[in-house]
Design a binder for these strands. Structure first.
Lengths: 191, 191
DNA sequence: GGTACAATCTTGACAATGTAAAGATACTAG
DNA sequence: CTAGTATCTTTACATTGTCAAGATTGTACC
C-alpha cells in the first residue's frame, strides 16, 4: 500500500477522526473538511467513501452505537436473574450518556435512529439496545412465570425504556442541576 | 413608524419568521439570512437585536417553551385532584411533542435548556414545566397526607419526568414504529 | 508484461452561511 | 435644532458542503 496517494483505509480513518473531533470539540465543530484535514487528505477525498456529510455522520453513529452496545452487554454479563440484568442495563444506559453527554446529543439529537440502523443489516431495523431490553424482559417474564398479552408487554417495555432513556436525557441537560447522582442510580428508580 | 428604513418591531418579526421556517422547512433550514430575508431586511440587520445566531435561537426557544407551557396549563385546568392533573399534564406533554416532533428536536436537541431560561427572568433558572410538575406533586402529597423526605421527593419527581420526557423522546424518533398510540397514553404508563 | 477500467485522491470552483467593519438613515434627548 | 444613539445597509471575508475535471494508483484480463 503506497502511502503517497492512496491512504489505505481512509473510510475508517475518517470515522475515527470524526469521533475524535466530537469528543474534543463537540459536534458543532465536526465538518467534512476538518475530518479530511485530520486524515491528511484533500477536502473532497471523503466523497470517494461517503455520498455526503450525512452518510459519514450515520457511519459514526453506527460506530458509537456499537460501543454503547458493548457497555450494555458487559453490564448484564454474569447477572444471575433477568431482573438484575435489566437493572444493570438501565444503570449502564444512564451512566454511558452521563459520562458522554455529547454522544447523547449526537445519537438522538436529530431524533433519527433509523438511518444508521439501515447500514448495519445485522440489526434488522430495530434499535439494538431496545432488542436487548426486550430479550431481558421476556426472560424476566419466563423466570417469574408471568403471562402477559403482547400489548401489555409493549406498554411495559416502552415504560422501562422511557424511564431509562428519559433519565439519560435529563442527566445530559446542562441546565438541570440536581443533587441526583446519575452514575449511581437508585434502585427505586428502576421498576 | 416609517416603513422604509426602520422596521418597527423587527425583533419579534425575526422570532416569528424563525418559528415559521422551522414549522415549514425544519430546523436545518433555519439560517440568519433566510430569517432576515423573510422580514424583507438585509442579512446583517438581525445583529442589531441579537448578538449572534445562538441568541436568536434562544429567543425562539423561549417563545416555543411559552406555547408549551400554555398547553400544559390548559391541560391541568379544572382537574379535581393533583393526581388527575399530573396525568393530564403527562398526556399533554407527550401529545405536544408527538404532534410537533420538530419542536422536541429544536428544544432538547442540543440538550441545553439553560440559555433560554436565563432570558426569561420570570422562570428564575428552573425549567417551567418541571416547576409545574413539582407544584402538582407537592399538592398530590398534601392531598393524600403523605410525608416524604426531600430526597425521596426528588427521586419520584425525576422518575415521573423521566417517564414522560422519555416517552416524548421515543415518540419523536422517526425510526421507532410502534403500535403504540402516543396521543392517547394509557394510564398504566403514568404512575 | 502490458492495457483498459475502476477506485481513489487532488485541484479548482461555486453557492450558502455566519460574522465583522464602515457607513447611511431614522429616532430621541437635551 | 443638534448631538448622539439605535437601527439598518453594504461590503467584505472565512468556513463550509458539494460538484466537476483531472491525476494517480490498483486490478482484471489478454
Amino acid at each position: 500500500m503506497a502511502d503517497s496517494y492512496h491512504h489505505g483505509n481512509l473510510r475508517q480513518a475518517l470515522i475515527d477522526a470524526g469521533i475524535k473531533i466530537i469528543n474534543e470539540n463537540g459536534e458543532e465543530n465536526l465538518s467534512l473538511r476538518k475530518v479530511a484535514a485530520a486524515c491528511d487528505v484533500s477536502h473532497a477525498a471523503p466523497y470517494a467513501h461517503f455520498k455526503d456529510k450525512e452518510e459519514l455522520i450515520e457511519a459514526i453513529k453506527a460506530n458509537v452505537t456499537d460501543r454503547f452496545m458493548d457497555k450494555l452487554l458487559k453490564a448484564i454479563e454474569g447477572k444471575p436473574t433477568a431482573d438484575a440484568a435489566i437493572i444493570a442495563m438501565g444503570r449502564a444506559y444512564v451512566t454511558f450518556f452521563s459520562k458522554n453527554p455529547d454522544y447523547f446529543v449526537f445519537l438522538f439529537g436529530k431524533q433519527n435512529i433509523t438511518a444508521h440502523l439501515k447500514m448495519n443489516k445485522e440489526y434488522k431495523g430495530d434499535y439494538p439496545p431496545f432488542l436487548l431490553l426486550r430479550r431481558m424482559y421476556l426472560l424476566h417474564l419466563e423466570e417469574n412465570g408471568l403471562e402477559k398479552t403482547v400489548e401489555e408487554q409493549e406498554i411495559e417495555l416502552i415504560k422501562i425504556w422511557s424511564i431509562v432513556h428519559g433519565m439519560a436525557s435529563i442527566a445530559c441537560m446542562k441546565g438541570v442541576k440536581s443533587s441526583f447522582n446519575w452514575n449511581d442510580i437508585d434502585e427505586r428508580l428502576l421498576t
